[in-house]
């Protein structure tokens, strides 16, 4: 657990800067700092919170704002499902906690580390997840309290640091040429869907399912050729 806590710190620093920016935004929309802290701890979904609060401020319609935010979270069906080999070995209460504290960053880092060391599992996921939850909650609340006097770091390219981190994690997950075609298909389908105005959350889910489906088809086809 301690290893996960340490490894996630650079990513947590980046998430903290984002949380800070979100806290500033939410405070400007009349959310109190403790309300933002409560939202961050109980929802723990950065992009969903940002979209929902923005929609709520502009439209004033709760269900629409919540649905817009939650749609972004649909990728977590795939993300949590992929954790099954890691989660099935821990007791149910821990599993129920682990799914709440799992975010993009600690999920991806867990798989990147696991690709190099098979002993990395649930303790790493939970240690890194607790760090992310704590940093996200504190940074959003701090942003709401004191944020207006500090410049918006996202304007300096902070958002790209996450893209770069995901590129590095993909590199760590690379298993060889067998991954090339599914990954290319996933990349092209995801970008294609977004270009055709499909919501990012659906595009991520559909793109990755396309990649996995291609792998399944390739395995099936290989099996048939062997039988022939």
């Amino acid at each position: 657990m301690k290893y996960g806590f340490i490894c996630i710190l650079p990513l947590a620093a980046g998430a903290g800067a984002y949380g800070f920016a979100f806290g500033v935004l939410a405070a400007q929309l009349d959310f109190p700092w403790w309300g933002i802290a409560l939202m961050s701890a109980s929802v723990h979904a950065g992009s969903s919170q940002i979209v929902a609060v923005e929609q709520f401020a502009s439209e004033g319609f709760i269900v629409g704002a919540a649905l817009a935010g939650l749609a972004l979270n649909l990728r977590y069906i795939g993300i949590i499902a992929s954790l099954n080999p890691i989660l099935r070995v821990i007791p149910l209460p821990q599993r129920l906690l682990a799914i709440h504290i799992t975010g993009d960053e600690n999920w991806a880092l867990t798989f990147a580390k696991r690709a190099q060391d098979k002993s990395v599992g649930a303790p790493f996921l939970m240690g890194s997840g607790l760090t992310m939850l704590l940093v996200w909650t504190i940074s959003t609340a701090t942003g709401a309290l004191i944020g207006k006097s500090i410049p918006d770091l996202t304007e300096y390219g902070l958002g790209f640091a996450f893209t770069a981190a995901f590129i590095a994690m993909a590199r760590a997950m690379w298993r060889g040429l067998q991954d090339a075609m599914p990954w290319i298909v996933t990349f092209m389908v995801t970008i294609g869907l977004i270009k055709f105005s499909v919501d990012n959350a659906f595009a991520i889910l559909m793109g990755s399912i396309s990649g996995v489906a291609l792998t399944a088809f390739a395995h099936h086809f290989k099996g048939h050729r062997k039988n022939d």
Binding site: D104, A108, T163, A203, I204, S208, T215
Partner: peptide, 29 residues
Amino acid sequence: FLGDLPGCLIVALIASSLSDANALTWVAA
């Protein structure tokens, strides 16, 4: 195929963050 899902998901996350990005972001990527 659960084993193939994490890699595809992370590639999809990268694709979504680059889909509307400008040329500079693609060069940086």
